[in-house]
Nucleic acid binder design. Structure first.
Length: 894
RNA sequence: GGGCGAGUAGCUCAGCUGGUUUAGAGCACCUGCCUUACAAGCAGGGGGUCACAGGUUCGAAUCCUGUCUCGCCCACCA
């Protein structure tokens, strides 16, 4: 046994220990083993990512779970990996290239992709390295990446199957378009934020048969927040019941500036209350207008280029950026007298979740997945409770979204990602731009959907085939993660063994993106739910409640914290302060909790090791030899084992951490270690010290893996060299001892009471104590623990009796029916003593009143359980007794 | 517009399937201690009408209703 250094240095120890675990292959999961499995797949961080506090929280929770299960003897697998984050990664590499003034388009698709792969090889494992530094016990040999061959095969397989099942289609719809990334986004990828915009009121003249230039005498006023889209207007819509416009039936309007003719249509969906009750209709640039367009068979005039500039249909405005165009159009309208006014208008505007550019709703041909059929089973499984959300309130959020699910736009106009496995025969399908090929039904001539390029077109025999240029949404590979990482579509042993997985730990913002879709894909392609429990933890925010993000610059870098206080301290702190599912408000000082606790654990262990000495080997404990304190700490340890277990089972990680903190610090260290210093039977106390320390370290290991392992390496090797794979403690019934705990509480109360008196009277030296124990049992208890009391309270117990009368000039305290008198001689300041006692009396009276009322209450006596009533009666006796003594105390004094 | 979460000590938060908690913790504060495991510590202490108003109940921080404040999520009101 080696002694521990006087100060624990996480920097030195943590990496060293991690390397040892890796070397011993302790993270390795083995599918050939029997036994109950426990599997978690990591929510794949984005390859461009660096570890932030959200990751730290997320992965610490998973590591706690997996280490706990591993110690319980489960065959555990924690499956790690990263996703390719199509848009984000492409953006990063584009920026890199921009530094040397190279554009992606100049390089061409293949060369560019080579660059991205190069980048990924060089920087893509940063986050993995950081997760290791956090202590994550993933089976790193299995690390997967969504663009790996196996996972790409899974993606293609799924695409083909969805197509064959009629769940895929391609067509023109309004989608969210990011002009900066130049790609479509799904509804979930457009983040809606309230923006203070303007609502512009514009005159749309009623057409005069004679002349095009109207002198404003007859017009309809429309209100719009995006005036530039008027270039694509084809109609104006009003509510048929709106009396202001009924007279206009049959008329035609003129679009100002472009002088295009606009139909006037009547539709119930137009809200007469909003703006002027007249809505300009732009089917190619607005989802509502698009619907109106379909309903009323309107032309779709798309006036915008992919980069957000106006195209040739926009007349003089061609080439202008959309926002520049907005300004210009307003100016022009003002000049020509079509502009009426604008007013402030707060509305939700979509922003690209990758670059935060304002998203443009825009008509575009894209691939979609029909979601309704997939959602059905996914709804059922959750309703049947086969998949449980923790905390449960997320169930409603999930169901609400699923029940209103919309089709998923999965094509992206970027290069980095899984290319859509569809080929078009140029000869059969007469097209100019391959993107324009429309597919509404499967089996259309000249279209091939499959894992690879077909040799020739089965329709015409030619081989003039072109692959769809677009790639798939990154989430289209992530949604397969729970089984694609396990080997699917191969029928692997790993898949058989570990699917369904057990728990998924993730953040709320990802429920729709990922969790819901995984449930759908799992049911569709495995006929089995992907996981049983979904634990949703809170969002990490800064002290002011703002979400931590790099762009806001309010991040606390986990690696900085690790450098300062160590990974254990970081892990423990963040778990300790995060109550189930609540958001976390972080500031740097929060990490002192973990740092101080780690220090405490280290020092306590150091003390124990010193006490055990070099030659200690754990031996059997004879219950007959145990002192009260021994019995107490063993009982308390049992309780801790149970509560920690329960807390972990119910995903209440903070409760588990809190319980351990309290037990180790305030029970084991503050009391037991102190009592152990006066133990007569060294062998017994050494064994108890050791037993409880070893058990506590095990319980603590999932939270603070490094320090517990480091200490474990120095203590007698009772079962396993590594705490990481040692057995999880069970509570040992032979040490359950309610009585000992109650008795010890009396002793602790007595000691605290004496300390209190000494402190209150500013007495440094030892005091004499006379105890009226009230009954034989208490008397015996006190007598057999006199030494403990005297030492820990710094006092001399002069006499103990069942009925001891109070010495002159003494102050009194009581605790649990035991009265304590401390003779202070004539130094007692009566007024001062009165303040001390008065406070206590006041509190007691208040409590007594409460109980008294309760006991006089017939309802209570009738309805409350007998136990409760009995306890209350007992209580009142005790408190009345105390009160009397205290009052007596005051009377005696003066 | 809909949904959710939160308002408890100076600060940050626990507690909320109603009755052993005279409402807890950490930090901060006050007092006394270098008691040889730990000053990142030890001992003691002060501090809260549990947002507000009703209701249910024998009994409410805890359940119900309403109000106010803050935060988040969802939604095609141009």
């Amino acid at each position: 046994m080696k002694e521990l250094s006087t100060r624990y240095d996480p920097q030195e120890n943590e990496e060293k220990i991690y390397d040892q675990w890796v070397k011993e292959k302790l993270f390795h999961a083995d599918e050939t083993l029997d036994g109950e499995t426990y599997c978690i797949v990591i929510p794949p961080p984005n390859v461009t990512g660096v570890l932030h506090m959200g990751h730290a929280l997320n992965n610490t929770i998973q590591d706690v779970l997996i280490r706990w299960k591993r110690m319980q003897g489960f065959n555990t697998l924690w499956m790690p990996g990263t996703d390719h984050a199509g848009i984000a990664t492409q953006n990063v590499v584009e920026r890199e290239l921009a530094k040397s003034k190279v554009k992606r388009t100049e390089l061409g698709r293949e060369k560019f992709l080579e660059k991205v792969w190069d980048w990924k090889e060089e920087y893509g494992s940063t986050i993995i390295r950081q997760l290791k530094r956090l202590g994550c016990s993933c089976d790193w040999d299995r690390t997967r990446f969504t663009m790996d061959e196996g996972l790409s095969t899974a993606v293609k397989e799924v695409f083909v199957r969805l197509y064959q099942d009629g769940l895929l289609y391609k067509g023109d719809y309004i989608i969210n378009w990011c002009p900066r990334c130049s790609t479509a986004l799904s509804d979930e990828e457009a983040e809606h934020r309230d923006v203070e915009g303007r609502l512009y009121y514009i005159k749309y003249p009623v057409k005069d048969r004679e002349k095009l230039e109207i002198e404003n005498e007859d017009y309809v006023v429309v209100a719009t927040t995006r005036p530039e889209t008027m270039l694509g207007d084809v109609a104006v819509a009003v509510n048929p019941k709106d009396p202001r416009y009924t007279s206009l039936a049959g008329k035609t309007l003129m679009l100002p500036l472009l002088k295009r003719e606009l139909k006037l249509i009547f539709d119930e969906d137009v809200d007469p209350e909003f703006g002027t009750g007249a809505l300009k209709v732009t089917p190619a640039h607005d989802p509502v207008d698009f619907k109106l367009g379909v309903k009323h068979d309107l032309e779709r005039v798309n006036v915008m280029e992919p980069d957000g500039t106006i195209n040739s249909l926009g007349g003089d405005y061609e080439g202008m950026d959309r926002f520049e165009c907005r300004e210009t159009i307003i100016e022009d309208l003002k000049q020509r007298g079509f502009f009426i006014k604008s007013e402030e208008h707060l509305h939700a505007v979509g922003h690209c979740y990758r670059c935060h550019t304002v998203v443009e709703p825009r008509l575009s041909k894209q691939w979609f997945v029909k979601m309704k059929p997939l959602a059905e089973d996914a709804i059922k499984e959750v309703k049947k409770n086969n998949i449980k959300f923790h905390p449960g309130r997320w169930t409603k959020v999930y169901l609400n979204w699923m029940e209103n699910i919309r089709d998923w736009c999965i094509s992206r106009q970027i290069w980095w990602g899984h290319r859509i496995p569809v080929w078009y025969c140029k000869d059969c399908l007469d097209y100019v731009d391959v993107r324009d090929v429309d597919i509404h039904e499967t089996g259309k001539k000249g279209i091939y959907v499959g894992a690879g390029k077909p040799d020739k077109c089965s329709a015409c025999g030619g081989n003039n085939m072109e692959q769809d240029p677009d790639v798939l949404d990154t989430w289209f590979s992530s949604w397969l993660w729970p089984f694609s990482t396990l080997g699917w579509p191969e029928k692997t042993e790993t898949l058989k063994k570990f699917y369904s997985t057990d728990a998924l730990v993730t953040a709320p913002e990802i429920i729709f993106f990922w969790v819901a879709r995984m449930i759908m894909s799992g049911l569709k392609f495995q006929n089995k739910i992907p996981f049983k429990d979904v634990y949703i933890h809170g969002t990490v925010r800064d002290a002011s409640g703002t979400k931590m993000s790099k762009s806001l610059g309010n991040v606390i870098d986990p690696l900085d914290i690790i450098k300062e206080v160590g990974s254990d301290a970081l892990r423990f702190s963040i778990i300790y302060i995060t109550s189930q599912g609540q958001d976390v408000f972080l500031s740097k000082d929060k990490f002192e909790i973990g740092r101080n606790f780690a220090n405490k654990v280290w020092n306590a262990s150091r003390y124990v090791l010193i006490t055990l000495g070099k030659d200690f080997t754990p031996g059997k404990i004879d219950p007959g030899d145990l002192t009260l304190a021994d019995k107490w700490i063993l009982d308390q340890f049992n309780r801790t084992v149970k509560t920690v277990q329960k807390s972990l089972e119910t995903y209440k990680f903070n409760d588990a951490a809190g319980e351990l903190y309290d037990f180790i610090w305030h029970k084991y260290c503050d009391w037991y270690l102190e009592t152990s210093k006066l133990a007569e039977n060294r062998v017994v106390v050494q064994n108890v010290l050791f037993k409880v320390l070893a058990g506590s370290l095990k319980l603590l290991h999932p939270f603070m893996p490094f320090i517990t392992e480091e200490i474990w390496q120095r203590i007698p090797d009772e079962e396993n060299k590594w705490i990481m794979i040692s057995s999880w403690p069970n509570s040992d019934k032979t040490y359950d001892n309610q009585k000992a705990s109650e008795d010890m509480e009396k002793i602790i109360g007595l000691i605290t009471s004496v300390r209190n008196v000494r402190s209150f009277w500013n007495i440094n030296e030892s005091v004499d104590v006379v105890v009226n124990a009230g009954n034989v049992e208490n008397k015996e208890l006190i007598l057999s623990n006199t030494k403990l009391i005297e030492r820990l309270a710094k006092c001399k117990v002069r006499s103990v009796g069942e009925k001891v009368s109070r010495p002159d000039q003494s102050v009194a305290s009581l605790v649990k029916g035991i009265r304590i008198f401390i003779p202070l001689g004539d130094t007692v300041d009566i007024e001062k003593e009165k303040t001390r006692v008065d406070k206590k009396i006041e509190g007691l009276k208040k409590h007594l009143d409460g109980i008294d009322r309760k006991l006089k209450n017939e309802g209570f006596l009738k309805k409350a359980p007998e136990e409760v009533v009995a306890k209350e009666k007992e209580k009142i006796k005790r408190f009345e007794d105390q009160l009397r003594t205290l009052e007596d105390n005051l009377n005696t004094l003066g």
